[in-house]
Amino acid sequence: MKNKKLRGIETLKSKYGLMFVSIWIVGFVLFFFIPLCQSVGYAFSEISIGEKGVQTFFVGFQNFQKLLVEDPDYTKNLGSSIGQMVYSLPMILVVSLVLAIILNQKFFGRLFFRALYFLPVIIATGVVMQLISGKVSADDQMASTVTQNMFTVEDIMGVFNLPAGIATTMQEIISSIFSLVWKCGIQIVLFIAGLQSIPSSLYEVSKVEGATKWEDFWFITFPMLSRVTLLVGIFTIIELFTDSTSPIIETAFAKMSVGIYDISSAMLWFYFLIAAAILGLVVFLYTYILMRRWD
C-alpha cells in the first residue's frame, strides 16, 4: 500500500518535472534543432533565393570541395585560427589560474580587485573590443590603436634605457598581455569558485606535514581543480572559436549578409567540426593522461 502510494507520487513528480522542462523542449525543437538540421542541409546544397523563397538543390560535398580545394583563403584562415587557439588556450588557463589564486587569498582590497578583474567581461565582449583594437574595418588605417598607444617603443626605451630591439619585443609582450587579460574575466571567476570548493582541511594537513606552498599547489590545488580546469578549458575553446573577430566567421558573416548561404554554411560547419575535434582531443588527453597519473 505504502509502496504504491510512493510510486504514485513519483509518477506525479515526473510529470511535474516534464511540465517545467517542456517549455525548453519546445524552444529547443523550434529554435535550435530544426534550424540546425536545416543548416546541415544548406551546407550540402546549392541555394538560390528567388520569387518562391529559398530553394535548395542537393549537391553533396561540392561546397566543401570548393572551400578546401579552390578557396585559397579558407585553409589559410583555418590554419591561423587553429594556431591562435593552440597558443592562446594554455596562456589563458595559466594567467587566469594564477590571478584566481592571488585573488582568492585574504588581503586588503581583495573585493576591489575582484570587481576590477571582472570588468573586462563587461567592456570587452563584442564590438568595443574590436573598435579599440582597430579591427572593425581593416581598410581604415587607424592612426593608432589603443593598445599600441599604451606604451610606445620610445617610452620604453626612454624610461628603461633599452636598445630598440628589446623595447619592441617588450611592447609586443605588453600588448599580448593586454589581449590575454581581457579574455580572462569569466575564467578567473570560474577558477575562484573552484578554489572556494576545496576544503581547507587539506591545506591544514599539509601544513602539519610540513609541505611547502609549491607542493601545496601541485598536490592539492591542481588535482582538486582538475574538473574546474577541464570546464574552463572547454569554455575557453568555445569562446575562442566563436569569437566573431576570427577571420573564418567574419568571412562567413560577410557572405551571409549578401545572401550566399550555402558556401558560408559549409564554411562554418567545417570550422565547427575542426573545433569539435580539437575539443574532443583536449578533453580526451586531459582525462586519460593527467587524471590517470593521480589515480
Binding site: 535550435f32 530544426i34 534550424p35 540546425l36 536545416q38 543548416s39 544548406y42 568555445i238 572559436f241 566563436t242 566573431s244 566567421i249 562567413a252 558573416f253 551571409m256 548561404y261 558560408s264 554554411s265 562554418l268 560547419w269 565547427f272 569539435a276 575539443l279
Partner: peptide
C-alpha cells in the same frame, strides 16, 4: 557547445 552563427540563417 554549438555557436549561434551556425543556426542563424535557417
Amino acid at each position: 557547445l554549438i555557436p549561434t552563427p551556425m543556426i542563424v540563417m535557417p
